[in-house]
Amino acid sequence: MRARVLLSLLAVALVAAPFVVSGYLVSVLIVALYFAYVGQAWNIMMGFAGQLSLGHALYVGLGAYTAAALFVQSGVPPWLGLIAAIIVAMAFAAAIGFLAFRFGISGVYFALLTIAFAEFTRIGFDHFGWVGASAGLFLPVSQRSGSDLLALRGTPTMFYYVILALAAGAFALSRWLLTSRIGFYWMAIREDQDAAQALGIDTFRYKLAAVVVSAAMTSIAGVFFAFYYNNLFPEQIFSIGRSIEIILGPIIGGLGTLFGPVLGAFVLQLLAEALREGVSALGLEIPGLTQVFYGVCLLVVVMFLPNGVWPPIARRLRL
């Protein structure tokens, strides 16, 4: 009951935000919601099923490039491109998951494999002429008179509501998955894979499902990224730094929880932005400051709140 009231308050605040706050703050909120969304997607794989991916930028990049290239080269509308993007990401995820789980690669070695695939793909795209190779892929930006949701062209406010809807959808899906049979099996696999197997849970199938679902969701974020930023470079979108950014939110917020990825993304992005603003207000320019800040946050959480920020807050609120 309390949880429902708080959740409704949060929803109302987020829906009303663009009417209240400045355009600058809306753009900060877009980034925060973006990370809340991808964090939620990554959390399904790591937080629910216990499979560590350090290469989730792969699926962001694949989603972004698939939809953007189809749009730029063939005029395929973004919502159709989205379906293609999801299919491509799921195919990659299925291939990686199949290789890893069929041959019993797990733990750290699985994480290394996810990095390797993200890196292969980055290098591949650097030489992939059809999508602009290392010179990048640019979406045509025309003067916007209004918002066109079908073409995914419009004002930041439109993008704000798109990413808000995505984040809410990811939250609802995660919630449903957690209480479903498959969520139950994921929990068993995360807690003790051997035991799950001994009980007759098809660990191969459910681990694969976690990877594929997570990749599909992440690729949607990629499509959003492409149409919001309008330019894509393999060196940026597939970089391991991006993968790390994705996982910071859920880790700091609380792995395996529903609110953790949301809370973590907001705390990190809002604080990082405040820090950037504060430093530039002092007339300083410190490159890499955000990364240092992320590192400090991670250090503090790991040392003092190993389960993340959310669980103690949930206890305090008696949720």
Binding site: A188, D192, A195, A198
Partner: peptide, 15 residues
């Protein structure tokens, strides 16, 4: 090999 953080009932249901 029980699941320590799950309840007794959840462990049994998992079976």
């Amino acid at each position: 090999q029980i699941f320590p953080s799950l309840t007794v009932l959840e462990n049994l249901e998992m079976g």
